[in-house]
Design a protein around this nucleic acid. Structure first.
Length: 858
RNA sequence: GGGUGAUUAGCUCAGUUGGCUAGAGCAUCUCGUUUACACCGAGAGGGUCGGGGGUUCGAGUCCCUCAUCACCCACCA
């Protein structure tokens, strides 16, 4: 025998992947179908290692692509990697810090090229991990998010928006991380509940007629107040509106205004307005044409616009100082605990400061409106469908998108500012130059880069060489976009919006969102908790196939799920099951090519197994067509294990039908291939049915033909065998045992099968039956057991009878219900009737047995 | 403050458009040295589908409500 007893994945996996790569079978090619199928891999961070989420992500994509490839469709799985701008720069800065340096020691070009080298060093690592997962990606189409074509596409999109007035530059409130020195989009801010305080401060009226008390959680920002607002309906303050306040600690006078946004119930009902440091106040300032005074700078320190004593203080120190000073002046009325939600940098946890900064913004309304329409029209299928609703709601409330980032590692924004007129900006892609001259005038490059999500929004079509590439024509829109549910808003939404905007078409036909993979106890995995599980370690431990199947077992779209190592064990055992089925078949029929002939069913078991395969092929295909990966895997698992291994192979031990065995092996290898590509291909290659034949591009199986009557007969054998096994096991019967029957032709014919499978010594025809009458079939047959056993078995018979009575009762009451007869489908009613008959017949048999031995007992 | 999802066997979860006696894996118990496989085989036990109400001939599945958990969104000074 060629195959060793246990499947050792690591002995084969690398060679098998190499075989696939050398044969270039991952390049899409039509083989008997004109259809195309395409998935573009959501590019993982080129610098990082793949995590379990990627493991799940890649497994799902690869199963889908392998299935469609076997169906003969030109199937593309396009690999890529993300420069992951901010993320990567943060990692690199940490590395610099270890060397006692920081980003401020280098200019933008230096930093960029250093990070480029840093990322390039890790590229091998990243590609190796794709291969380890068994990804059937076309490496010749590999794309990096900083590849020229991606940058070019990004610039063209930006230009189109520029020309069509969707891009604007403006001084707006920006979410700013003072530690990293960059702004963020709204969606990138992580809000956390923190225990804070609320201070009530007395603001004296200029006319000396009293005070107005305001409530604030950020007293230090009062230095930048330019008004106090009250609700116009608030009777308490009716007379205050229009008056002015002498702002404490400063020399400024500010007005009291009325604005409906003020909540009468909250605090004192009077709100200090700090337009430069609060989004609400910013909006109010626009409405009332108030000045905006920046009192906090981009390093988180108080600016020169504050009184001298505060200048240069950190926000925290300034808060303390301001509170102390107010207290001293008797203006601090009250301090209360006040837990509230504060935005933090999702990387370093620094409190995000809303700061006034000039940035590039994209007007989102027209883009969102179009996306909402295609979603409402069901143009894109969502798994799970509930995510579509959430996306629509998100798009409806979408605000303009800040795409400027103050980092080095990214795609430079192709915009230049006039040196003469700072208001004047021009679009130009000569970003390698700091200063350009156009029409004799000097322009200075914007030092910022694009938000990474801006360039990656074009991923579905820029990777396919939009607009003229062959790939674009053949593979766009993508068949499926598979990604984490957590990036539905930042990425999926933008791909849809920009896809529609640039290509006039939806970017993908379906979206499958997987949930978070948590640790074994259901907690979120994080480095700080130290509960991160490395997929490569699991692959090392169990093999790739087991890893893949373990990841999708029990997986459903959209739901978070704890990592379950027992699933990997089960999947590993399944690989070994496949392996040993192959060993058995190899032993029985050899491994020669002439054995691969069309299946010729002879025995009832042959017909039965073909029917099972047919059913399984149909079901697996159906599930895969509908992106139900877990169900598809479950189907294959049980076909292989239960039907093929436990029943058919056991049945065929007496007489092997090599054409059927060969066919079974071929079919189950194909069915299992998308899930377990390595073990199936390894077996396939060992058998070498044809020269150069590769399982990964073999034809997806089609349903075999079989004889229905034969199938039913095998089902009878199955129930007899199951009943005998049950009796033996329950009654602890050991040793020889005979099955007698009263001249049943069927049992004469198939007796040997029963002998082999139920471990019965003989199946004999007798004049008068002896022993326990089997009740699972209509055939007259007895298991030859002694009187004591029979007496003990009576208890079981009683139990079964009461169960049957219960069932009969249910069925009868259903049929007595006139509405049921009238309204339920006829087919169902008929079914109920025949069920009732069967149940009654079965009960009669049980009763007969019971009675027969009950008498002997007395 | 809004929204979404979850709640089914000891554990992790399936359960298509409502339809038969609700499934799987793991775990548990009882047997088994049957050469394809102990990463195995045979058998068994275990659930009033979170609570309550409703629609229906029929509800794990649809509707209402309550509870618990998780996540997301939001401008609460």
């Amino acid at each position: 025998m060629k195959l060793p007893k246990v499947y050792e994945p690591h002995e084969y996996e690398n060679d098998i992947y190499e075989l696939w790569e050398k044969a270039e079978i991952f390049k899409p090619k039509n083989r008997g179908s004109d259809n195309s199928y395409s998935i573009v891999v959501p590019p993982p961070n080129a610098n990082g290692n793949l995590h379990l989420g990627h493991g799940l992500n890649h497994t799902i994509m690869d199963i889908a692509v392998r299935y469609h490839r076997m169906k003969g469709e030109a199937s593309l799985l396009l690999p890529g990697a993300d420069h992951a701008g901010f993320e990567t720069q943060v990692v690199y800065e940490k590395k610099l810090a270890e060397q006692g340096k920081s980003r401020f020691d280098f200019n933008r070009e230096e930093l960029y090229s250093q990070i480029w080298d840093f990322v390039a060093e890790n590229r091998d690592n990243y590609e190796t991990q794709f291969r380890k997962l068994g990804d059937s990606v076309d490496w010749s189409r590999y794309v990096f998010t900083l590849d020229e074509k991606i940058i070019k596409r990004t610039y063209e999109t930006f230009k189109k928006m520029w020309d069509e007035g969707l891009v604007y530059r403006g001084e707006r409130l920006v979410n700013f991380c003072t530690h990293h020195g960059t702004g963020f989009a709204d969606i990138e801010v992580a809000y956390k509940d923190v225990p804070g305080h609320i201070w009530s401060i007395k603001y004296p009226l200029t006319d000396g007629s009293g005070n107005l008390t305001v409530a604030t959680t950020r007293p230090e920002t009062m230095l930048g107040d330019t008004a106090v607002a009250v609700n116009p309906k608030d009777k308490r303050y009716k007379n205050y509106v229009g008056k002015t306040i002498k702002l404490p600690l400063t020399n400024r006078e500010i007005p009291i205004i009325a604005d409906g946004f003020v909540d009468v119930e909250f605090g004192t009902g009077a709100v200090k307005i700090t337009p430069a440091h609060d989004p609400n106040d910013y909006d109010a300032a626009l409405r009332h044409d108030l000045p905006m005074i920046s009192v906090i700078d981009h390093e988180g320190k108080m600016t020169h616009q504050t009184p001298e004593k505060y200048r240069g203080l950190t926000v925290a120190d300034a808060r303390k100082a301001v509170v102390d000073d107010l207290k001293e002046q008797g203006l601090l009325e009250e301090v209360k605990d006040h837990p509230h939600s504060v935005g933090h940098c999702y990387k370093c946890g620094t409190v995000i400061e809303p700061l006034l900064r000039e940035q590039w913004f994209i007007t989102m309304k027209p883009l969102a409106t179009r996306a909402i329409k295609v979603l409402r029209d069901d143009k894109i299928k969502f798994y799970p469908s509930s995510k579509k609703k959430q996306l629509i709601e998100y798009l409806e409330g979408l605000k303009d998108w800040n795409i400027s980032r103050q980092i080095a590692w990214g795609i430079p924004i192709p915009a230049f500012q006039s040196q003469e007129d700072p208001e004047h900006w021009i679009f130009d892609t000569r970003v390698d130059q700091e200063i350009i001259v156009v029409d004799g005038k000097k322009y200075v490059r914007d030092p910022d880069v694009f938000d990474t999500w801006f360039s990656s929004s074009s991923w579905p079509y820029s990777t396919l060489d939009y607009p003229d590439g062959e790939d674009f024509k053949k593979f766009y829109p993508l068949s499926l976009m598979e990604t984490g549910a957590d990036i539905l808003f930042p990425w999926v939404s933008r791909m849809i919006m920009l896809g529609l905007y640039v290509t006039d078409t939806i970017p993908f036909e379906a979206v499958y969102l997987h949930g978070l993979v948590q640790d074994e106890h259901g907690a979120k995995m994080s480095k700080s908790k130290g509960n991160v599980i490395d997929p490569m370690e699991k692959i090392q431990e169990f093999g790739t196939d087991a890893f893949r199947m373990g990841m999708i077992a029990n997986e459903t779209a959209g739901n978070n799920r704890p990592f379950d190592p027992s699933k990997l064990v089960g999947a590993r055992n399944f690989c070994n099951k496949l392996w040993n089925i192959a060993r058995f078949i190899e032993d029985k029929v050899g491994d020669k090519s002439h054995l691969r002939v069309s299946p010729k069913a002879e025995t009832i078991a042959d017909h039965w197994v073909l029917s099972k395969l047919q059913h399984s092929i149909e079901k697996t295909s159906f599930y895969l067509e509908n992106n139900k990966f877990n169900e598809a895997y479950d189907t294959v698992y049980h076909t292989v294990w239960d039907d093929v291994a436990d029943w058919y192979i056991e049945a065929s031990k007496g007489s092997a039908n090599s054409s059927i065995l060969g066919y079974i092996l071929e079919t189950i290898l194909k069915l299992a291939h998308p899930f377990a590509p390595f073990v199936t291909e390894t077996i396939w290659q060992t058998f070498k049915w044809e020269d150069d034949s590769i399982l990964a591009i073999s034809e997806w199986p089609s349903a075999p033909k079989y004889n229905k009557a034969a199938v039913e007969n095998f089902e009878i054998i199955k129930s007899i065998v199951t009943e005998i096994r049950y009796i033996r096991s329950e009654m602890h019967l050991k040793g020889e045992i005979n099955l007698y029957h009263g001249g049943e032709k069927f049992l004469n014919e198939h007796g040997s099968l029963i002998c082999a499978m139920a471990k019965v010594s003989n199946v004999k025809e007798v004049e008068a039956g002896r022993g326990l009458h089997l009740t699972s079939t209509k055939l007259k047959c007895w298991l030859d057991v002694d009187q004591e056993t029979i007496q003990n078995f009576l208890v079981k018979l009683e139990q079964k009878q009461s169960e049957q009575k219960q069932i009969i009762k249910q069925l009868e009451s259903r049929l007595e219900n006139k509405s049921y007869i009238k309204k339920a489908p006829k087919k169902l009613v008929d079914e109920t009737k025949s069920q009732l008959e069967e149940a009654k017949a079965f009960l009669a048999k049980l009763a007969e047995e019971s009675k027969r031995f009950g008498k002997t007992n007395t």
